[in-house]
Design a protein around this nucleic acid. Structure first.
Lengths: 206, 206, 206, 206
DNA sequence: ATATAAACGAGACGGTACGTCCCGTCTTTCG
DNA sequence: CGAAAGACGGGACGTACCGTCTCGTTTATAT
């Protein structure tokens, strides 16, 4: 009959009416998806396989996620939040630490699965946007905070083209992840940060 | 590899015996693949669809490409060569020109299809490697040539961490393509080049 | 199953405690089932569809009927009772009248739905037996009464193989309904009765 | 057998063009369907189950039959032909023999499956019509031949309402099959034939 | 000219996964 | 405490493509 799930009535509206969605089912599905992603890769993460491994019914999966790639993103997102503090450390220390952590986090199977999932997803879906913001762009935003804090306290001058600069710091990580032409290691992290700092006028050659 | 073939006359290496593979079939298939990629996207580029649209039989497609994603890469590669000269122009001019051209070339549907194709492909296959080298990394190598030429003629000092620097120039393009958080435009191209030059010690702030 | 479960005691207890079973719900469900049967056919009569159309909850439906085909039979049974009197009319008049009425009643969409419902039902269930007795066999029993009355008053001789004869009178109706090779009309009703009477020695050829 | 897709052009027309349909696959599917029908009944004859048991792919099944009930009919039809001769035997002998054979053939699980399949099928489909003609109506037509032969050689007088008579001979069989109120046995067969003969004026009571 | 052979198109094959429908059960809130 | 609402695990549906495999046909070269 009525498809309106939100039922935006004036009432404070306690619980909606019927049996509530099962958190347990969602958790089991995400865990199974994570397992498959790590053991067999994105291409084998089918809705059918998740249903079989998790014991959750297919219709329940489709009630929660629109397709396999949204399920993959949800699995990759779960427990992702570790945002670094904008802190007071010197810019090099702060950026370098974050970059090294990122490299460690992404230089795994999961890193490439994240890139593939992003490529395969419908770029307009809400889930994709959430994934993008929480998994891909959150570090970029942390970096923006770090740099702006350094500018505010006078460690560096004002930065006018910060968007491009941020892409130059965080883009290379995904570039290497996707293209695979060179390894993702800490030396790489350090070099990227060093170059960015030179561009910011820190530690320039004489 | 082996050339040993009894051939009358001065013909270079006689033909194998039966009907030769049809170039026309390959061309029709690639054209159909290109059409589908541009009109419907990577997800709809199936071997079946290419066969139906091109009139080429499925076995012929499989004789030429291992699967749909290799066919996609082949279609995206066709007519790709335009490598920029390493030229003698000033570094900023050369890099900026190349970057603007790249942005123009990739800020299209095709650009995103390229990124998706790369993500979906088996990273070990020969076709993927060729695609990576010709479509993704050729501009990076051109940039390396440009920068090394500038160093050689003394326009800039020696660059020790050039790999990271190249990734910081070309990575952001794919980052924006894949993530879609900001537009790919010429202002972006100019900003990236400007920041890279600052890092190289060109046009630094006083 | 279909009858009221609530009548727990004779009288003294007022209401049994909670909310009483709703007769209205049962009626709404049966009406919805009838609608669907007539408009869309037996194959579309699902418990889900009846719940949606009637506003009655699925558990309530299952409380009253074991599955969709019992619900169908219940819907087809409702208001079915019109059993003809065994009367004193001449045999031909009585049988012919009943047969014509039967043909009129079954030569409709509903007739075929009844045959289908019977075929699809679990032949052992109580509901099926009730359906069989009330909808399929009640006319046959009426016919038995008519014939036995005629024998009792000497209009015909004793009939020893009356079971087969009854099947020969009422079977053809369902045969045509199910197989559909010839129309169900009054000429057919008359011919069947005429042949049966000849077999009973009434109006034989000289 | 079931569908004649071969383009009926004026040309002698060799083979159509591609790989020809596999008779073996069709045979395996029918055998599996027969097995399931006999062991588990019509309700368990799903396309999925036939695919699993036969090793034939689901799309191949759908290429040959429109749905499970057509597959069931095809399975029930296979090897069905045994049409009785119109013969010169006395009418009672001929009809009685056929009727007893029919009762033996249908008084099995298969008999009820046939009735159910007929009820469940789309009455307009070609397959249903073929099933009806070959499985349900072929005996009726044989009976017509037998009776007309008897009339032609003067054993009985002319029969004007033969359609109704035929339904009264063959209808009761399906009636008992479907309704299940009385057993299908040879006594029943004999009684039906005897009553029909009385109606035809053979062996009437004095 | 005539074999011979390879590649061609067509299209059916056994499969896997899709996303949907409905089943019959269960858990929750409301009356 | 029963009825509505509605999510659940399950199973089958019918479809889309996969990559493989015959087929009969076409187009070359080699005899």
């Amino acid at each position: 009959m009525s498809q309106d799930r939100t039922s935006k009535k004036g009432k404070p509206a306690g619980r909606p009416r019927g049996r509530p969605p099962s958190k347990a089912a969602r958790q089991k599905a995400l865990q199974a998806a994570r397992d498959i992603l790590m053991r067999e890769g994105f291409g084998r993460l089918t809705v059918e396989a998740v249903a079989a491994r998790s014991g959750v019914g297919k219709p329940t999966l489709y009630r929660n996620w629109a397709n396999a790639s949204e399920l993959a993103m949800a699995a990759l997102m779960a427990g992702e939040v570790e945002t670094t503090e904008a802190g007071d450390a010197r810019l090099e220390t702060a950026l370098g630490g974050q970059m090294r952590a990122l490299v460690r986090a992404f230089a795994t199977t999961r890193g490439r699965q994240i890139a593939i999932a992003l490529a395969a997803a419908d770029p307009e879906s809400e889930m994709t946007k959430a994934f993008r913001n929480r998994v891909i762009l959150s570090s970029r935003e942390a970096g923006r905070g770090t740099i702006e804090a350094a500018a505010a306290r006078g460690e560096i001058g004002p930065v006018d083209d910060i968007e491009a600069l941020l892409d130059m710091i965080y883009g290379p990580l995904f570039y290497r992840l996707l293209v695979g032409h060179r390894p993702l290691d800490e030396r790489f992290a350090d070099n990227v940060v060093a170059i960015a700092l030179r561009a910011l006028g820190v530690g320039n050659r004489p």
